[in-house]
């Protein structure tokens, strides 16, 4: 078997999610090649070559891949991937965008958002917002799969020495063009891969109050997240949303502040190792999944938390 993993990156850095996807590829078994498609992304190719268990890195470096447009990536990956038994990408917004195009161009089904590998053709994935877990078998000759990164422990990012090969395949579908992007700038770790996440919900009352959470997060080296209720209320931007329709996180420690624990939020964070809930409503469903629950007014508890953390840090 031969597996092609599509690297997730920003043209300068390899995202950790790629290492999680390589881990999923290892669970399938077989030779693992990594495709890095981007613009001026040579450093990403070098980084991918160091990942544990990677056989070969293919680098498609061209302006047409610079913004990861699904139309162009879809054609590239379908072309490069047709000689592989499996094509894997992280189930982030880039992978979710181009991978179904790859599957359609190859006339195969896609298995989305897998959490576990049962065998080379059988995979476990959540359905109904994580309220049910399906075991799915694919009969296609090429398996196109998106992987939930947090469900697989990443392989080591150092130590490997795969060969790096430049690919001269330029696919410009001519259907779409990049206009602009507004990316949130933050010195905090990426929400999807942070070891600690501090999230706020509707109980935060407004966006300004999230500063309290940011101060706690900075003490812990944590990322800041939010519930859908907080995003829909306009407190914080959508890229902070944790939940089935936002980001799926599984940090070592998840601190939920003023979050009631709607099922759609739980689907995005219940694989966290340790969950802390701070909420003044002791009946809130979040307490049913929390390892440590504190029934308290968050406007008193969060400043106290900051103070206590300063003492122990």
């Amino acid at each position: 078997m031969s597996i092609l993993v599509i690297a997730e990156h920003d043209n300068s850095e390899l995202k950790q999610a790629t290492l999680n996807v390589v881990a999923a590829a290892k669970a399938i078994g077989g030779d693992i090649d990594v495709l890095v498609a981007g613009e001026n992304c040579g450093a990403v190719g070098e980084a991918a070559a160091k990942a544990e268990g990677v056989n070969k890195v293919l680098v498609a470096d061209n302006a047409v891949y610079g913004h990861f447009l699904g139309e162009n990536l879809g054609e590239l990956v379908a072309e490069v991937g047709k000689s592989y038994s499996h094509i894997l990408a992280a189930a982030g917004t880039v992978g979710k965008d181009f991978m179904p195009r790859v599957a359609a161009l190859l006339d195969v089904a896609q298995v989305s958002d897998i959490m576990r590998v049962e065998s080379e053709d059988t995979f476990v994935r959540p359905i109904y917002a994580g309220n049910a877990i399906a075991t799915v078998k694919s009969t296609d000759s090429i398996k196109v799969i998106t992987v939930r990164p947090t469900a697989f422990d990443p392989v080591a990012g150092e130590g490997g020495s795969a060969a790096v090969e430049q690919l001269d395949v330029v696919k410009d579908a001519g259907l779409s063009a990049f206009v602009n992007e507004e990316l949130a700038k933050s010195d905090r770790p990426d929400l999807g891969s942070a070891g600690i996440v501090v999230s706020g919900g509707r109980g935060m009352q407004n966006g300004d109050n999230f500063k309290m959470l940011e101060q706690v997060a900075d003490l812990l080296g944590a990322a800041v997240g939010a519930s859908r209720a907080a995003v829909d209320a306009g407190f914080v931007p959508n890229d902070m949303q944790v939940g089935q329709t936002g980001k799926i996180v599984a940090p070592q420690l998840y601190i939920a502040v003023g979050i009631s624990g709607a099922i759609q939020h739980l689907a995005g964070m219940s694989d966290s190792k340790v969950i802390v809930a701070i909420n003044k409503d002791e009946e809130a469903p979040i307490f049913q999944v929390a390892d440590y629950g504190l029934v308290a007014d968050l406007f008193e508890a969060v400043p106290q938390l900051e103070e206590e953390l300063r003492k122990v840090k």
Binding site: Q288, A290, G293, L294, Q304
Partner: peptide
């Protein structure tokens, strides 16, 4: 011509509720 077959569907593993702490100091 479906390409995928669902072998089984299960309920997700449920998480057990933990403990309530009295105050922030105990939590930390």
């Amino acid at each position: 011509a479906p390409r995928l077959s669902t072998l089984k569907v299960e309920a997700p593993a449920s998480r057990q509720a933990g403990v309530k702490v009295a105050d922030v100091a105990e939590l930390v």
